[in-house]
Each structure stands twice: as C-alpha cells, then as structure tokens.
C-alpha cells in the first residue's frame, strides 16, 4: 500500500522548513498544496524537495486538501494523510494514524489531541471543541473528541468521496458529518501535536464568532442534507 502525505499550505514560508525537517525520515511521498500563497511558500517548498501543486488563487484549506486527494487518486495512492503546513503535526504520529486504514477498520481516521493528552487548548478553543463534539453527537450520533483536528488519514473510499465533495472553508467539523452520511467508517486515534508557537492565533473576536456560527449552522444544515452513500 502506498501512502501520500498531503500538506496544505497558505503563506507558510516560515514553517515549511520545519515540516520538511520533521518529515525527513518519512518513508511516504509528500505533496505540498500551495493554496495561492502570496509569500515564497512555493519556491521554499520546491527547494526543500517537495512536489508542489499551486492553486492559482486562494481557495481555502478544504479545497487544498481536496486537490491533494484528487492528486492522490490520479497517482493511485491507497492512503492519504492530511498534515498541516504550519508545523503543528508530528511525523512520528503518522504510522499511528495510518494503522486503522491499513487494517481496513476505518475509511477516515482523525488524530485526537484530547485522546493523545498533553495538549493545552486555549480556553475558547476548548469550549468550541466541546460544543462541536456535542453538535456532532446530537445531529448525527457521532462521538468525536477532537472534531477540529486537521490531522487525518483517508482510505481509498474516503479519498474518492471527498474528492467529489468537500466543504470549502473551515471544513474540519462539517467533513465529519459528510463522511458519516456517506457511510464512511470514522475512527479516532490518540495523537500528539505541537503547541502552536508564535503569533499564529491571530484570529480576532469577530472571526471567532463568525467561525462558531458558520460551522454550527453548517453542521446543522449538512445533517439535514441528503448525501449519497459511498
């Protein structure tokens, strides 16, 4: 089985070298999806030896992941791993997240910081995460401890499904509903992640409120939608 690491990156020139360093020992192929960055993400990633696919403009992280999944299907990979370009995810956690797909126990695996322990969420993020967990449980009966985690592994069925439809912006929570409606097997595994360092949490108050509202409404409406079983 061949696995591809998909690295969505938007203006991550400062972090891509760290990601490359971390993935140095990885046995899997990797592709950087440069989502219309205005900095040197493309050149830096290319010089570090990554294969880079460039969106002509910024679509959003959902669209970037989807491009990666389409690429993985084109190149006939069996497994795809979503690995953020900001250095938050850890290469030594990849084998753990692949295992359920490899053993054919799941189509979508989510790396959970809650199950992994040791990760300190800022208060609002912790509350937000709890709220989304509750919402997922109430609207679809799915139990996910860390629904905003972007560390994920996709099996072939999930790759095919998500390359046909994937929520655009802030896709993490909604995509879980999509997957469950499509009949994909979802599993969470404990994962360790790095704390975000530096002024990355620059999301303002209004943006946070918009995020909460958008995702909450999105989850509720998606749970009413009819999505073809895959």
């Amino acid at each position: 089985m061949r696995a591809l690491i998909i690295i969505p990156a938007y203006n991550e020139e400062a972090n891509i070298p760290k990601v490359a360093e971390d993935l140095k020992e990885s046995i899997h192929d990797a592709v950087v999806i440069n989502d219309g960055s205005t900095d040197k993400t493309h050149q830096i990633a290319r010089d570090l030896g990554f294969k880079v696919l460039n969106h002509p403009y910024n679509i959003g992280v959902g669209g970037a992941v989807q491009t990666g999944l389409k690429y993985a299907l084109l190149r006939d990979y069996d497994i795809a791993i979503q690995f953020d370009g900001d250095g938050q995810h850890r290469a030594d956690q990849i084998e753990n997240i692949i295992r359920p797909v490899f053993n054919d126990e799941a189509d979508l695996v989510i790396g959970s910081r809650i199950l992994g322990g040791g990760y300190r969420f800022p208060l609002l993020r912790r509350i937000g995460g709890r709220w989304f967990s509750l919402l997922l449980y109430l609207s679809a009966g799915i139990k996910i401890t860390d629904p905003t985690s972007g560390f994920r592994c996709y099996g072939r069925r999930a790759m095919e499904f998500f390359s046909s439809c994937y929520p655009e912006d802030y896709p993490e929570v909604e995509s879980i509903i999509y997957a469950s409606k499509a009949g994909l097997r979802i599993k969470e595994v404990p994962s360790l992640m790095r704390q975000r360092t530096g002024g990355r949490s620059s999301i303002g108050v209004f943006q946070s409120i918009y995020y909460m509202l958008k995702v909450s409404i999105g989850v509720m409406l998606t749970s009413l939608r009819s999505i073809r079983r895959w």
Partner: peptide, 15 residues
C-alpha cells in the same frame, strides 16, 4: 477549475 489547473501544471514550475 483552479484545482484542475493545479493538477495540470504539476511539474511546470512557478505558480
């Protein structure tokens, strides 16, 4: 379309 362009331009260098 943007995604298709990204996939088509694979290996073709600058963005």
């Amino acid at each position: 379309l943007a995604q298709e362009i990204a996939l088509l331009k694979e290996n073709k260098g600058s963005p």
